[in-house]
Design a protein around this nucleic acid. Structure first.
Lengths: 214, 214
DNA sequence: AATACTATACGCACTTTATCGTATTTATAC
DNA sequence: GTATAAATACGATAAAGTGCGTATAGTATT
């Protein structure tokens, strides 16, 4: 059976290079190419009979991450392998979150690309070892944006309070646990909300978790 | 340079099989074998000059997960590849959390085992594609115990409401977004709380996330 | 010594949430 | 075709949470 492939990339040279690599294998057929995510979505609309998409990330109009999300939502059976030059944590994490089935680097050789595609179609995931290691590290310690991490400075007492809150406790319960008055807890929470720029417990806890504060 | 390897497994036959596979390669040398985690730790104490450990998981006294944790703490430079017959989410997740650098299945052939070892030593991670896919899924949706998962059955409407709640919205805001009366939202939430056996928004959202309901 | 920040505490006003009832219409299943 | 469950809606009420102001003692910084 022949695997029908779409290539999405805004760089014509790189598309050529990928086509070249795929051309060695008779069980693979490039059905169409797209220059960006929007182009891909339009072309899938008319011609969605592809099995697998090789997707770049950095692209104009709709980037590879968003495109992956949308394609996976509309056509969940289509496999998507990210094929990019960048291997930073943020891209990898976002691609996986968006639903990518694999993540390969453009420097890959033809044979590895071929076996990556086959593995993905057979219900595996294509990754080169360095990407695999990064995913393991992400799994140990999920990625968070570095920028906002620095800005938020809670005092240790505030962190205590937040940890209590995150257990689903009420103000009174927190006050008892920390041996403080409920009013003090309230004030701490006010300050926490202000620093986190949120307006309720749920948002506070979620933001704190995202930022590894708790 | 020759890579010094330790094999840890409580099954003599399987150790033989692994040794057999490794014997084809002159750049690999089996320094010692251990029958369980405790045995490994003792032998490392006397003879810690190995580069990489092939570790089974199910073992008496100290299992492979705990052993991995302890070895990584004491000898962080030693690479550890899990080599087991089981590929369930729980084992994979725990092994990675414990610090494993790779996860292979015992059915692996000699060549793949060899390249997995080399990749790991070169700063990558060894994984076969099906394991890689599982790690991606875990990254999207960290592992939760299966048992409680099944018991909770929310209707699709209740899930809608819960998703809105998880964004930190108030009852009124949810009602507007879903074009329903606030009273209806209240009732849905009552039902959600009962099913989830919780008593506030935060707990509901957390439990729902843990159970992949949202 | 002056300044800034933290941790503590109280009060008031107002909003939101959590639980309890009851009830109607629409799907789904047997 | 009737029983069952889901989705919708309203009312009452107590509890909890949010936002504001104010205040004091301690600690750290400059």
């Amino acid at each position: 059976m022949i695997t029908r492939i779409a290539i999405v990339d805004d760089n014509t040279f790189l598309i050529r290079a990928v086509e070249e690599k795929l051309s060695f294998f008779e069980d693979l057929e490039v059905r169409f190419i797209a220059m960006n995510g929007k182009d891909l979505l339009i072309k899938l609309e008319e011609n969605n009979n592809v099995d697998l998409i090789l997707m770049d990330i950095e692209m104009p109009v709709i980037n590879g991450i968003e495109a992956t999300e949308q394609v996976k939502q509309k056509y969940p059976h289509i496999k998507i392998i990210m094929l990019t030059v960048f291997d930073n944590d943020e891209n990898i994490f976002n691609a996986i979150k968006a639903g990518a089935d694999g993540y390969l680097l453009k420097e890959i050789n033809a044979g590895d690309l071929h076996s990556g595609i086959l593995e993905t179609l057979n219900g595996g995931a294509a990754m080169n070892p360095s990407i695999a290691l990064k995913t393991l590290k992400l799994l140990r310690n999920p990625f968070v944006e570095e920028k906002e991490k620095e800005e938020i400075k809670l005092t240790s007492r505030e962190v205590d309070v937040l940890e209590q809150l995150s257990k689903g406790l009420s103000y009174n319960a927190v006050a008892e646990n920390l041996i403080l008055s409920t009013g003090t807890i309230r004030k701490h929470i006010e300050n926490i909300y202000r620093k986190l720029q949120v307006h309720n417990k749920l948002e506070a806890v979620q933001k704190a978790k995202r930022n590894n504060i708790i």
